[in-house]
């Protein structure tokens, strides 16, 4: 029974990790660069939700009504006003800029909110459980998280596969120069992709804040989990994110069951192991450009 419960909890945890990875996978898939502030942006979204609940008296989930469009605009603005300026100089500027941004966000949050750990209060749903069998109770909210993840993944997949804009995203990812010849303005696509990623991050941040407490310096660890998810799952693959999240969640819970100090370590080792045997992940999707 303990084994089953560990496995199920690992899968549920993996749902959260896959959410972390989803936004990163989207921007990596299209722009081929990693936003090193990804984790900090998640935490920023959590704090913005906290602020909204405090000022407007919303519940955290209601705050998404404000947060999703706001985060979309921040992402779009960041890409168009800042990151797009450095496109022709390779990936180094974007990596350094987002690394710098990571420090700006962390310390900005520290100054604004202090280092105290905070929580988002959604009410009873946080602690409700679903009892599957005697001795096997799963948290309701983690199950909901997994549901949100699946909805987002299917929605994103449908957007990419069925809409003209989604096809333009994929075309730009394949070959931005030729996409330009089709009338696709790569800079705008990049802006929209970052905006979309930030909108997903808004959802992620709120869920994270309801599930656990948070502090201004929690971002880097989130980035690493997100990155591991896409390393395991395969770069730029949306379904890979699901697989990557589940494997990472399982690895951590199993490691943690052995000894609490092995919790994160087991996840890192799983990632490095996959990197050693399958460098492009389990479900590689993006085409490696020469």
């Amino acid at each position: 029974m303990i084994a089953i419960s560990t496995a199920l909890n690992g899968i549920l945890l993996g749902g959260l990790y896959a959410l972390y990875g989803l936004g990163l996978s989207l921007t990596f898939g299209i722009m081929r660069t990693v936003n090193l502030a990804h984790g900090d942006v998640i935490v920023l979204a959590t704090y913005l939700s906290l602020l909204t609940t405090q000022i407007l008296g919303f519940t955290p989930l209601m705050s998404l009504v404000v947060l999703v469009p706001v985060m979309f605009c921040i992402g779009y603005g960041l890409q168009r006003l800042v990151l797009n300026r450095t496109l022709k100089d390779g990936m180094m500027p974007a990596v350094i800029i987002t690394f710098g941004l990571s420090f700006v966000i962390q310390n900005g949050l520290l100054l604004g909110f202090s280092a105290d750990r905070q929580v988002l209060r959604q009410g009873a749903v946080e602690t409700m459980g679903v009892t599957l069998a005697p001795g096997l109770t799963l948290g309701l909210f983690p199950i909901l998280t997994l549901g949100v993840l699946l909805v987002l993944i299917f929605a994103l997949q449908a957007f990419m596969g069925r809409t003209l804009l989604g096809r333009a995203f994929r075309a730009t990812s394949d070959d931005p120069n030729t996409a330009e010849l089709m009338g696709i303005d790569g800079r705008k696509i990049y802006g929209l992709a970052m905006g979309l990623a930030f909108a997903i991050i808004a959802v992620t941040g709120v869920i994270m804040g309801i599930r656990s407490n948070f502090s201004p310096f929690d971002g880097p660890a989130r980035l690493i989990f997100a990155f591991e998810v896409i390393i395991i799952g395969g770069m730029g693959s949306i379904y890979g994110v699901l697989a990557g999240g589940l494997i990472l969640g399982l690895a951590q819970t199993i490691g943690g069951a052995i000894s609490p100090t092995y919790f994160q370590l087991a996840g890192h080792l799983a990632t490095l192991g996959i990197l050693a045997v399958r460098p492009s992940g389990l479900f590689p999707e993006t085409i490696e450009k020469g």
Binding site: V82, R85, T86, P93, I96, I97, F99, G100, L101, S102, F103, V104, Q106, N107, G108, L111
Partner: peptide, 13 residues
Amino acid sequence: MLIFGLIAIVMML
């Protein structure tokens, strides 16, 4: 730390 981060961004740009 915040200023270091900002300077790095501005320098890169």
